[in-house]
Design a binder for these strands. Structure first.
Lengths: 362, 362
DNA sequence: CGTGGTCTTGTATACGTATACATCACCAGA
DNA sequence: TCTGGTGATGTATACGTATACAAGACCACG
């Protein structure tokens, strides 16, 4: 007969694992009673529960999570799909970890750049109870596949075309508009832009809003002063130099997120440009770095904390059985005025940048 | 009879899950054959395997990961315990994710600041096959508990007192010494230091090495020019100001990691100090930011890529059955000379900092 | 035509836990 | 004393997969 005592729970080369039956044998009760006692089932007599708990502690019993998950067909685990090439993810992941832990969930990380089929195989196989998707491209197929499989998920920071899905986003269009107004009010007329990837909703919407804002203010945005690229440092750094090589260089540049702006500031620093005198910049996101003295970046605050909390709340509700229609939660964006934009007093600089007197507003 | 078709695999409110028996019924073979066919067991006839695979695809069958993990008592999942308060973690996690994925493992993230008992409960319960610990305090109990439980683990970047455990570290003592020599060779005699937490091996060893290096060069390090704090931006920023308030302010400051150095540079920027003319700085780690123009930080390169790869290799070997004695892998640290240290030409500045001619070396 | 072997598939079972149901002890009330 | 009820525990089973073992089909060869 297989499964004799002594052969059970032996993982190759490891100490034999104590299971609930061992505890039961020790106390002299059934395995079921052990299970109940440790889960504080009220039907277990107080005295028995104490004896079981004592024995469990003494024997070093820890419930086997694999058995438990298997039985319940639930893992208490939530997958976080992030774009690990975008530094923003670490901010979101750290917060998500803590909030999920508060609710008894753990988090596993999946990179978006991984094999999508493999990712789906994991997720469809009961690998996690639900999914947080923090950085989807508009054409991503994962959300549709998940909803077909009935795996709850929520999109954070970005949305998707077509799919009706729970999502939490910032009001990127308004934010883009506000950024445009900021630069226009400061007197800039020769404006440039470093836009993010058009296949992301953030990239698309911020660009859209910014263009709208400029149009409302009667300021044009010629193609020669526009570049598209990734949401990363490298793009900001190289693209700014490119932008400044043009014939009519901009006096102000809209950067579609703070990372790009940081890259741009570094490029400006390297070129010996003074900010905001020679060149004004705005970012988007209000990462912590934006407030650091070396950057002191004027930007649009995106309330990631609140957004992520909201997303997690939505997801936990779904897990609790909420089956109301998909909901998109839009959070307002607020300008944070720091030192990288400035009032233009005189005429904007020509080829050799002339100093514009500083007039910080915040 | 329970378990009739139609009631199986129904998770509350979700589409019924297709299991291997459904596929078996569809093809007209046994469940065992399905399992074998999809795992490419050579004992399955080619024709049968194709029929099974076709049916699996058609029915949308995905193996239930919970059942599989349960059966195998293995998750193909590795836990990464990190200190989420230290920005360094995101660098390590991103790389670990990809390397583990290459080997068929997924990664779950656990914050060190979480409840240690809960963490242990997870890990002892078969929750992950192995553990990477990236940021242990010297007094951490987790490693001992893991080794008692027989859960394979490896320490990255930091080591522990007493415990014999697999670990991969940088040669922090030598690195500290090299940093001291660097400043001494540049002519600094009035040196200060922003040391990290003494209860981390990195903090302790880098401090030790730096003190040794200074002693060898005959340079003293009075208490008034030393501060201890966390490995974070806030410490660097506030501590530098404190340091400069002293009577005999340092002309050069050793920062125990790059994050602290970045904080210090920001503080210097805020105070209007020129670097390296008014104040020289060195960091430690060589994060990407160190090379950015606004920082241009002279630092000690810690080869995190190689270290993490080595750690993962060690861990996978353990999982493959390697039971050789614990091994500590020490990686060399190399100075990266950039713009924040400089040769001191004249006499070091007194209270009102006088300019020292710039003499960058790299 | 039987025998032994090879290929292929089926049958049965185990992994550890949670829980529906059965059972038993005990006590209150008639 | 018997009945019905309650509280506590035991028994049996299911979750989905992987695999040892049994067994059947088929062929080659004597």
């Amino acid at each position: 007969m297989p499964g004799e005592a002594g052969t059970r729970g032996v993982r190759a080369g490891r100490p034999p694992q104590v299971d609930s039956r061992d505890v039961a044998a020790d106390v002299g009760v059934s395995q079921a009673t052990v299970s109940r006692a440790l889960r504080n089932d009220p039907s277990v007599a107080e005295k028995t529960r104490l004896r079981v708990q004592e024995a469990a502690r003494r024997l070093g019993y820890v419930p086997n999570d694999l058995g438990r998950s298997f039985k319940n067909q639930a893992t208490h685990r939530i997958a976080f799909v992030a774009d690990l090439d975008n530094p923003l993810w670490s901010l979101l992941v750290a917060q998500a970890h803590d909030e999920l832990a508060d609710h008894g969930y753990t988090m596993t990380l999946l990179a978006e750049h991984g094999d999508p089929v493999k990712i789906l195989t994991y997720l469809a196989g009961g690998w996690a109870d639900a999914v947080i998707i923090s950085s989807a491209r508009l054409d991503a197929q994962l959300p549709q596949m998940l909803s077909r499989r009935g795996v709850p998920f929520v999109l954070v920071n970005r949305t998707l075309a077509g799919t009706a899905a729970d999502a939490v986003v910032a009001d990127n269009i308004r934010g883009g508009r506000a950024a445009a107004q900021l630069l226009i009010e400061a007197g800039h007329t020769r404006v440039g832009a470093l836009f993010g990837p058009p296949e992301t909703s953030t990239g698309r919407d911020r660009e859209l809003g910014f263009r709208e804002g400029l149009a409302q203010g009667g300021v044009s945005l010629p193609k020669s002063r526009v570049l598209h690229g990734e949401f990363d440092y490298a793009f900001g750094r190289t693209a700014l130099s490119t932008l400044l090589r043009g014939r009519y260089r901009p006096t102000a540049v809209f950067c579609t997120n703070d990372i790009i702006a940081v890259g741009a500031i570094n490029a400006a620093h390297e070129l010996g440009l003074r900010i905001p005198d020679d060149l004004a910049l705005t970012g988007f996101d209000d990462l912590e770095e934006a407030s650091w003295p070396v950057y002191n970046l004027t930007t649009m605050k995106v309330p990631f904390d609140a957004m992520l909390s909201s997303a997690i709340r939505m997801l936990l509700n779904r897990l609790a059985g909420d089956d109301s229609p998909a909901h998109v939660d839009v959070h307002a964006v607020t300008p944070v005025l720091r030192g990288t934009h400035a009032m233009v007093r005189g005429v904007a600089a020509e080829m050799p940048p002339a100093a514009a007197p500083r007039a910080g507003r915040a």
